[in-house]
């Protein structure tokens, strides 16, 4: 289960951040999920109760924002959404591309007190 391991790692990252910021409780996490990150948002949501179980975030809500997978064709320069184009440039058909956006899994905000 890929997403569960990813969330376990995220719990450790947030643990460090909240210690530094003197946070008492985390109410909500806002996570940006890139379409090209290889992470399935639905599986993140399903795994969250297991990943947060018996941690300081057991009551914390997870809000996901999907970031489109935007790439630039290295052959003709066209900028397009890689997912909807099935990883091929809609203009020239090339599959040599540079990722501009949507490759990451980022913690955007921690809502806390």
């Amino acid at each position: 289960m890929h997403e569960l391991g990813v969330l376990n790692s995220m719990v450790h990252t947030i643990e460090r951040i909240v210690k530094e910021q003197n946070v008492t409780a985390v109410h909500k996490l806002v996570i940006e999920v890139g379409e090209l990150s290889g992470i399935v948002p639905r599986y993140l949501e399903q795994s969250w109760p297991a990943a947060s179980y018996k941690t300081f975030m057991e009551e914390t809500k997870l809000e996901l924002i999907v970031i489109p997978g935007i790439v630039k064709c290295k052959d003709c320069g066209r900028v397009f959404n890689a997912v909807y184009s099935d990883l091929n440039c809609p203009d020239c058909g090339s599959n040599d591309m540079e990722i501009l956006e949507g490759n990451d899994l980022m913690i955007k905000e921690i809502v806390c007190n």
Partner: peptide, 18 residues
């Protein structure tokens, strides 16, 4: 009504592992 604060983090989920 509780006062919430929002920490703008913009950190990779994998930051701690890295």
């Amino acid at each position: 009504m509780e006062d919430f604060k929002i920490l703008e983090i913009k950190t990779s989920v994998f930051a701690d592992n890295s």
